[in-house]
Design a protein around this nucleic acid. Structure first.
Lengths: 346, 346
DNA sequence: ATTTATTGTGCAACCGATTGCAAAAAATAT
DNA sequence: ATATTTTTTGCAATCGGTTGCACAATAAAT
């Protein structure tokens, strides 16, 4: 593609017979330039069709007002909501988002980090892939002291901030709720135990079981990709176990919904045969029948908080050394877990 | 934030006692540099922790390998799928995406265009907001001859490519299907008639009615924001009309699902009292009960095609003057439209 | 051995905005 | 009228790669 020559501050400076520095200052509304001249500069710039060239400015200023975002995938309700919140906050603060997907692969994640490095992003916003084992891929970021905010799927490490919810407590509450409904054989469907979110939900689940002196054996934990087709796999694993549970707590709504559909196909009644609780409060949880009991996860807020936090750090207006920011979740009780004639006990 | 001094090609050139030009060429794997030296340069670069600075390169080369994306919102299943496909294709081709949301506002859309201009994106990928009236906001893009690919919500104009599906035919097919099921009073729920997608679906609907000599009056068209709460509004409008329809064709699944829920609440049986057909084939269409008849819309493919098309244009490997690319859709018939004991007629 | 062709390398300008510093211009004080 | 302060403006260097062109080094041809 041929490129037209652009209008630069030099063209403006020639047109007005002043220096480029003055034009630059004028366009940046610097008080160093007297008001009327500033106006004339802006006026002329508009007339000549001038467009600010970020690259030149970035090169000189060594900052890009760009945030690098790395997420597993963008096409889940939760993640697209997070991104939406982030984008809005970032845009309002004059920042742009460079988004890349790891597709749950550690290798792609690392490649994305490199690419974002090359783009000289001012900061990183990261939610980890299933595969990522440790903080190695991020050491370069730490070494260069580039701000990094993890959200949702985080990593404990040195100087970075995490925006999360209390997954342990959420897992505990969901499980506790199932127990209160009279469930005694509760299965948990989890994701990658490399990831805090799934590990903590699982731990909360275990804690709730043990607090109620309910037995647990390892066949009660089923790990899957939590995809919208995981229901089949889960059912097969359950059947292979011999006896069916009377309650299931899954680590996301997508798998919960898939599971409910499969359960119904097989003739199980939800919740009376098997109560189900999910996680995330995706819109589909209010559509599936029975409506899904779940944990409300504030996706948009998480995106907004993550973005505004990193921006505060970048602008130097964040003085406190924050380690993690915990947003509030909420157990949303719907029909999928309410055994007939039962009300919630304490 | 303080910035550490970066390792530049000059540092490498000093370390190897060769010129910066040679280093630059070596890093770009230019055959102008002899092989062993190339290797040594790359080796040293790696050892010294060199990171390519895109800005400097962009500034000189007057290209950014960045695509500007403007969409109404990212947090819908359809759009996040599109973006996911785009991002993957772009990344594989060495491009990055700068995504911004118009939030259905023409003003924000225009602001986004400006911001992307300033970032010197090589091309634009745009899906229009509800509000946008005409191509005015894009004239600057045309004037500068920056490639622009519209997708989904497109605009007929000069030199740009559109990636779409045949919304007219899809609307026709959905309506025709309802007619084949015996519906005679079919209502259409549409979005902004500024947008091709909604206008064409509506036209297809009208054509199908008229081809079957079914009457139409303007109360059969209800315009809403098609949101997940639109069901209530729609029901109220329907009730206000006096008589209820026996079929409803809505322009997206979100509103269809919301509507089905409301209809059920009010005691209407879907499909026997009222058959419903949606649009998009969101995952929720297979969850709602009854499962939703809908038009399968290839979102990921649309993102991929849009991205690869604009990249081909940018790389100059697209020779034909393409005006629009039409992807195939498919009518997916599920229970929400299948009247009892009825099979599809021709 | 000399000429010609082929490779490989370096010089220096360039992309376009920013900014420290100095100097000019204007305003104020003496 | 002169000195001092304040406000405006310009000079020139800078950010870090890229690239046209010239020249050097090496290989091939005569």
């Amino acid at each position: 593609m041929k490129k037209k020559a652009e209008v630069t501050i030099y063209d403006i400076s020639k047109a007005l017979n002043i220096s480029a520095s003055t034009v630059s200052r004028g366009l940046n509304n610097s008080p160093q330039v007297r008001k009327e001249l500033r106006k004339k500069i802006m006026q002329t710039a508009r007339e000549m069709g001038y467009q600010h060239n970020k690259f030149a400015a970035n090169l000189r200023q060594k900052r890009t007002r760009t945030l690098g975002v790395i997420i597993p995938r963008i096409d889940s309700h939760f993640m697209s909501t997070v991104i939406s919140g982030m984008e809005k906050v970032a845009n309002n603060a004059g920042y742009q988002l460079l988004i890349s997907q790891s597709e749950e692969s550690a290798m792609l994640e690392e490649a994305n980090i490199q690419a974002l490095f090359n783009s000289r992003v001012d900061g990183f916003l990261v939610s980890l892939s299933f595969e990522t084992k440790n903080s190695d891929p991020f050491t370069e970021i730490f070494r260069k002291e580039i701000p990094l905010v993890f959200f949702d799927r985080v990593l404990e490490c040195g100087n970075c901030v995490s925006v999360i919810i209390d997954n342990f407590r959420a897992g505990y509450e969901a499980t506790r709720h199932l127990i209160n409904q009279g469930c005694t054989r509760i299965v948990h469907i989890g994701g990658s135990m490399n990831r805090n979110v799934y590990l903590d939900r699982y731990r909360g689940y275990r804690q709730a079981l043990s607090d109620s002196s309910l037995a647990y054996d390892e066949r009660q934990l089923i790990l899957t990709d939590l995809s919208d087709t995981s229901g089949v796999t889960i059912i097969n694993r359950l059947l292979a176990n011999g006896s069916m549970p009377d309650g299931i707590f899954t680590a996301n709504d997508t798998s919960a919904v898939s599971l409910i559909c499969e359960l119904k196909k097989k003739g199980y009644r939800v919740p009376d045969d098997i109560a189900v609780a999910g996680f995330n409060d995706d819109p589909v949880s209010r559509i599936v029948e029975p409506n899904l009991t779940t944990i409300h996860y504030p996706g948009r807020a998480m995106g907004e908080v993550a973005a505004s936090t990193i921006i505060r750090i970048l602008e130097g207006t964040q003085y406190e050394r924050v380690n993690s920011i915990i947003l509030t979740h909420e157990l949303i009780i719907r029909e999928s877990s309410l055994k007939t004639g039962r009300i919630e006990l304490q």
